[in-house]
Amino acid sequence: MSVAPPKVLLAMHVNGADVECAFSPSKTLLEVVREDLGLTGTKHGCEMGHCGACTVLVDGVPVLSCLELAVEAEGREVTTVEGLARGAEMHPVQAAFAECGAAQCGYCTPGFLMSAAALLDGADGRTLTQPEIAEALAGNLCRCTGYTKIIEAVALANGRMAEQSRG
């Protein structure tokens, strides 16, 4: 049997905070956020890139944490679903998901929220088309909702954010 390589100690930025963490270099970002940082909002589904449940943002860009090495997150800004709210105030897309009934079992929800938040935050107040929303969410699978309510929720949040940005 080969001996496991020693742990690495890494300084990471997660949800706006600096954290230090020691883990095996072969751990994925998904494993580190859930097991070493205790942030269990990010879900593990297939762990093979086939479902999107593990979606997090790295430097604001949606990626699959099950296929990211945690060591490569050094010096990057990682955002998980726990980092979406501003204090007690939910991100507009979280509020819209709740209002529209866009979550049923909820397992896929954190991943959808991350893809949707990146899309909405990048839209800069522009109204998104339905195909644009569907395309941005094409890497997240949901076995319950049939997607209609999810797309409605993202459109609702987009409308509200556009209104807000107009003042």
């Binding site: 690495v8 994925t28 060591v71």
Partner: peptide, 12 residues
């Protein structure tokens, strides 16, 4: 969990 087999990582 489907974990990666152990390896060491050398950034270039």
């Amino acid at each position: 969990m489907m974990r990666l087999p152990p390896f060491s990582y050398r950034p270039a």
